[in-house]
Design a binder for these strands. Structure first.
Lengths: 158, 158
DNA sequence: TCAAAAGTGCAGCCAAGGCTATAATTTGAT
DNA sequence: ATCAAATTATAGCCTTGGCTGCACTTTTGA
């Protein structure tokens, strides 16, 4: 069978950067996607906490759990992680609060989310699907794509 | 503090279906996104295996590992899971093969991937970003959105 | 006021998806 | 034919993100 030598890391690199999706290119892309996946939940939590505080004045474990559809124990563990990452503060039996960097992240995430939803709506996608899809898509949109979305919305103003 | 009653599951539902994103709606959306996340890797593997077989005639553990940028041990574990899910076949020290349902899934995933990339390109996003973003986005695109993407591409043919 | 309900926290379990290190098998070259 | 290199497999460990069950505070309301 083939047993092709498959270009070792340190290999020559004499030829032109061939136009085929080189292995390491794809590997880098997968790595990036993997990283994005890891930050998805963080972004979801921070965005949700900001939302709860904005509308109800406080973010409680049980509220987050209900909105996310997970058990409260899961939320407590996640919040512990967010605390380690200095995105939230909390004291036992007192609510959960965003730190400054938590708020900054929330603002960024929120803006991006709105833009993605607006874009999907401008494309003519039904609101329910737009919201649902945005939830998953928003975490994987590069700056270039975000810009393109914004441009499209601008060009399709009523 | 507020301590709002938060509409229990079986609750009356007398009032109008209020326009705010109801808790359970959002919870359902998050659940769906969570599910999508769980299937992402499956889809990536199946797509990659199909690709390797199409171009090189076989899919080997080490090839998959290199393309994905993970260790071979990780691949072996993932393949074991795919086997449990009846998407691939494999015998020790022999390659990895897609079952019928594996091939069907691969075909679907591949078509969707191409469509998403084509859409991003049609939007004017640079090829590199388009490819990278598609990798993450493709797993979160509903049928409705996919249709909208196809329509857009059609409408923007040169 | 004080007991029940609601909310919070903790321990321990599971599966997934990573890893390294070690063992086993196959392949290729001499 | 043999032996080294490549490939494949296994074992054991870690973290994350789920869960349930139990214990502990806080809040509420009779």
């Amino acid at each position: 069978m083939s047993r092709k030598p498959t270009a070792l890391p340190g290999a020559s690199m004499v030829g032109p950067p061939d136009r085929l999706p080189r292995e390491d290119t794809q590997a880098r892309r997968f790595g990036a996607t993997r990283l994005a996946r890891a930050t998805e939940l963080t972004e979801d939590y921070v965005e949700l906490i900001a939302d709860l505080m904005a509308t109800g004045g406080e973010a409680r474990t049980v509220d987050i759990a209900r909105r996310l559809g997970v058990s409260h124990a899961t939320v407590i563990k996640a919040v512990a992680r967010l605390k380690r990452e200095a995105l939230v503060n909390s004291k036992p039996y007192r609510g959960i609060f965003l730190t400054d960097s938590g708020q900054a992240l929330a603002a960024r995430v929120r803006a991006r989310h709105r833009l993605v939803v607006a874009f999907l709506l401008a494309l003519g996608i039904p609101p329910d699907d737009a919201e649902a899809d945005a939830e998953g898509i928003e975490h994987h949109v590069s700056a270039a794509t975000l810009q393109a979305f914004a441009r499209f919305i601008e060009d399709h103003k009523p």
